[in-house]
Design a protein around this nucleic acid. Structure first.
Lengths: 251, 251
DNA sequence: CGGGCAATTGAAGGGAATCAAGGCCGGTGG
DNA sequence: CCACCGGCCTTGATTCCCTTCAATTGCCCG
């Protein structure tokens, strides 16, 4: 089971949610805000490296990331790991586990993470009383689907260099959109092992591929993370046009 | 734009939907059935090979497959193609395009396909008046997400043989669940090029990989399609435990 | 009967995995 | 204070899975 380390409980009222201030997220109606603030049971804070949800568990909770980064992954019996996507502030976690019988992937914290915890039993009430929010849930699921589509294209048809370029450009743009500190350089808090497990490559070859990108001055590998110097250059290598979105979160 | 060939319009009333009879799909309440039968504008029949939806289009429709097979795919500028998933009877098509601004993938018919066409403008009414159906929409999107997750695991971490075995077992089980003719041998109406584009392999290597499976008597390549002889054997090679589902469709 | 598509097979080359080893750095304990 | 250790990054050498190039067959169709 998950190894939590609770550090605190309910803290940030939804009315003062810092994410809400970002252009990136849509505003609630007063009624929705009222509902959501009751939907939220509390907050959960976990350390970097902690398992937030694990494959096979059936008592899944529903969360939204309030701060920090995490990632979703699946594993084969012999230990091979595939990272499916990364979770950043505003992302919903555990929807699959809530709707289906059990989780079919795990979620791990990449940095210290704060989560808003929701009552899964009230989910039906959400659909019944706030169709706009129900619509949002579907929207969020469809958005995740899109990301996975692009990821599949990457793994199936892009070369190692293109794959790496796509991933880094993608992460950079998302990180930028959810950053609370505008203008600040965004640094990705991941190791090369994470990148390798995302791209479906070995760590050795990932390292060599990243070196090529660094040689071209597109990225720079900093201590325990990666700085993106030229996201447009990366997107161009990958043949990727970018995401267009006006997201709608939850919290 | 899409190259349709309409062969007929509204034909099968939702009340007599043949898919509804399958255990695999959940039943509607009378109110839901009533709503859906108005939600459905008509039917569209296209030939094998026709493009049902194409990437970049923004006037997307919303469809459910009534009969036949299709597939979703994305392409890179230079023509490399990645098949994302296959669409079978009961599957919803175009949800992403309906919720977002435009389609980011294309859909093509693999066999002659009949589609139920829905009014996208009534989608809000669906969420507002039939929360159960709204819930289903989210469920469907989450289910697709799961499939993509497993696919991503395949492309990233499984060997060519494992990948092929997984794909064939997966398609077989889905085909079986949506087949109207029980007991009949299910034959997959796809070419090796489709398989190659799904697995992210070249067609030559796909051919050699399928040969290995055929040599082990797990499959047999028939004229213009593939017969599955031992889906459990395939699943075992792939290290795949199967899908558990009680689906909920639409029509 | 020519032509095109799908499947098939051989041969050669390359991209990525694997094996192996070394450097850097922060943490820990004697 | 410094030796030891483990995690992460890096690099060289070798192997092999898969791609690419090329050519043949069989079949359906106009």
């Amino acid at each position: 089971m998950a190894t939590f380390k609770k550090r605190q409980s309910k803290q940030t009222p939804c009315q003062q949610c810092p994410l809400r201030a970002l252009d990136h997220f849509r505003d609630f109606t007063p009624e929705e805000l009222e509902f959501v603030s009751h939907f939220k049971m509390g907050e959960l804070a976990v350390d970097a490296g902690a398992t937030i949800l694990s494959e096979g568990a059936n008592s899944a909770h529903l969360f939204t990331v309030l701060s920090g980064w995490g990632f979703r992954y699946k594993m084969l019996d012999d230990g091979r790991r595939q990272i499916l996507n990364y979770m950043m502030p505003g992302d919903l976690i555990g929807l699959q586990g809530t709707l289906m019988h059990e989780m079919q992937h795990s979620v791990e914290a990449l940095s210290p993470v704060t989560l808003c915890v929701f009552e899964r039993d009230k989910l039906h009430k959400l659909f019944a009383n706030h169709p706009g929010l129900g619509y949002d849930m579907t929207w969020i699921a469809a958005q995740e689907e899109r990301i996975l589509d692009e990821n599949l294209l990457s793994l199936g048809r892009r070369s190692a260099l293109e794959r790496a370029a796509y991933l880094l450009a993608f992460l950079y743009r998302r990180a930028e959109a959810t950053s609370l500190f505008e203008g600040q350089r965004v640094s990705l808090p991941i190791t090369q092992q994470h990148i390798a497990d995302t791209l479906g490559l070995s760590i050795v070859h990932t390292n060599r591929t990243l070196r090529k990108l660094a040689d071209r001055k597109l990225i720079r590998w900093a201590e325990r993370g990666c700085d993106i110097l030229d996201d447009k250059g990366l997107a161009q290598i990958a043949g990727w046009s970018g995401i267009q979105e006006i997201e709608r979160p939850f919290v």
